[in-house]
Design a protein around this nucleic acid. Structure first.
Length: 463
RNA sequence: GGCGGGUUGGCGGAGAGGUUACGCAGCGGAUUGCAAAUCCGUGUAGACCGGUUCGAUUCCGGUACCCGCCUCCA
């Protein structure tokens, strides 16, 4: 099976050929752990989880290395720690920072697991790789690609001819935009920070340039090199990282290792929209994955909604999509209950995923399998996409015990009504069940009650 | 201002230079105490204007509108 992926670097779909099929290497930009992950943060995690699963399917589970970093150096983290200290929290600033990042990472792991995503093989933390960053910065200075000034170290953008290739813009274009930060210590306004000084109120590490902390982009260059080497297969993240983050990563890594190509294939997922607007912190229209889970939206449903839109198109989160996804999953779970998955996923599903992760096309194939009554094929294929797994299925079983008892009562009432011709009690029960989101099936064979979309076990109380 | 992307039937959302996407909703039928579910049947859409072609929604150019990046962001 040939996998084809859309490479941002070339703006075209390319056949994917790993550098080493025995060790396919992928790096995805992970979270900055300053707060709960919002729904937009979850999209790349799910998208690249599907790619990870596909790569494992094609090359073997032991032949894919997936690295997703954790950024735990960040001014927003510092800010939270400072506020906590000001509010009287015990401990040093460093301890409060660690506390904050530890709890945020635990939330992140729990929330992403709820979406059925596999943990990456490595989750390096920036604070564990400071030495590697300092070494890389020193190398860049030696080669003339960076310079120290006023306690800062800056990358000399003019020294790298390839700058702008990923984002498809020239340095002149960017200067025309005229929104770069001008600082007295910069040789050129485009130059970006590799290292910056920390005062006593900020976390810092000793370096040749004094006590300080790394800039935003250098961590990914250092950590990908440490875990995947100077050249690897896939680098992923949200499209908003294309510039400047990924452009700067390329500049740093390629200048540090001129003989290597850094990441060969760049994949970017489009943004998540809410009410037609990008979900973003500055617009203040974001909600977290946990908010949704707490509202009773199962992680599997969120995952299904995500996969319904191709990753390179903006996706609007809507209540209607949530409802449709839940209904389809309930149907499929009913169809596959007690069935063993087929030995391998359906070729049509693998083919769709292999075509630049056409998850919407793959879901259409799942519908076809369900329509054909192929429960075993459906199960194996859905699981390749991380759907219909045992871990994600608990939501679909909630309240089913109560339904079994109600089904018996309804069957008895119906049998009595058949004789008396008075169906009022049967109709009352049926209406109440439908109101609780239950699908009521009455046939000659008997009565069957199944949870439907929006099923709420709490509404069964009065029955 | 610079750069990039998008525009598909009632809604969501794919692929393909010429043949039904698919899902949801709708409509007709079977079935049912009535329903629901299920099954069968049913829709002929691709912003606008040109061009290439025997043939374009699919390729090329332009226009309009929408969105994103250029500033913390996935």
């Amino acid at each position: 099976m040939t996998i084809r992926l859309h490479n941002t670097l070339t703006r075209s779909k390319e056949e994917f050929r790993p550098i080493d099929p025995q060790n396919v290497r992928m790096y995805v930009c992970g979270p900055t752990v300053y707060d709960r992950a919002h729904l937009g943060n979850a999209r790349p995690v799910v998208v690249f989880d599907v790619l990870y699963r596909l790569l494992r399917h094609v090359y073997g589970p032991g032949h894919v290395t997936y690295v997703r970093n954790i950024t735990d150096v960040d001014d927003r983290i510092n800010e939270t720690a400072r506020k906590r200290r000001a509010a009287g929290a015990a401990g040093t600033l460093e301890e409060l920072i660690r506390e904050r990042t530890e709890e945020t990472i635990a939330w992140y792991h729990a929330d992403m697991a709820a979406l059925g995503t596999l943990p990456p093989g490595h989750e390096p933390r920036a604070t564990d790789h400071i030495a590697g960053m300092i070494a890389m910065i020193e190398g860049l200075i030696e080669r003339g690609h960076a310079y120290a000034a006023d306690g800062h170290v800056l990358f000399r953008v003019a020294s790298y001819a390839g700058y702008g290739r990923l984002s498809g813009r020239t340095v002149e274009d960017m200067i025309a935009g005229a929104r770069v930060e001008v600082a007295p210590y910069k040789e050129d306004p485009m130059d970006f920070v590799l290292w910056k000084p920390s005062d006593d109120d900020l976390p810092g590490w000793d370096s040749p340039w004094g006590r300080g902390r790394p800039g935003w982009h250098i961590e990914c260059s250092a950590m990908s090199e440490a875990l995947l080497g100077p050249e690897f297969d896939i680098h992923g993240g949200g499209i908003d990282l294309q510039f400047p983050h990924h452009e700067n990563e390329i500049a740093q890594s390629c200048c540090a290792h001129p003989q290597a190509q850094f990441a060969r294939t760049w994949l970017h997922n489009e943004m998540l929209m809410v009410e037609g607007r990008k979900m973003s912190k500055s617009l203040g229209n974001f909600f977290t994955v946990r908010d949704l889970l707490d509202k009773g939206v199962p992680g599997e449903v969120i995952r299904m909604v995500f996969l319904g839109t191709h990753y390179r198109k903006p996706m609007d989160w809507t209540e209607e999509k949530r409802r449709e996804a839940e209904a389809a999953l309930r149907r499929w779970r009913g169809l596959t209950a007690g069935i063993e998955p087929a030995a391998s996923p359906a070729p049509g599903v693998v083919a769709a995923l292999s075509d630049d992760l056409n998850t919407a096309g793959a879901i259409a194939e799942l519908h076809a399998l369900a329509g054909a009554g192929d429960g075993a094929g459906l199960l194996a294929s859905a699981r390749l996409m991380g759907l219909l797994t045992d871990e994600l299925g608990h939501w679909a079983e909630a309240g089913t015990g109560a339904l079994d008892a109600l089904a018996d009562r309804l069957a008895a009432a119906r049998a009595a009504a058949m004789d008396s011709k008075d169906f009022s009690e049967v109709d009352r029960m049926k209406a109440a069940l439908v109101a609780a989101g239950v699908e009521v099936r009455m046939s000659k064979a008997g009565v069957e009650l199944l949870p439907g979309a929006g099923f709420d076990p709490a509404k069964l109380e009065g029955l």
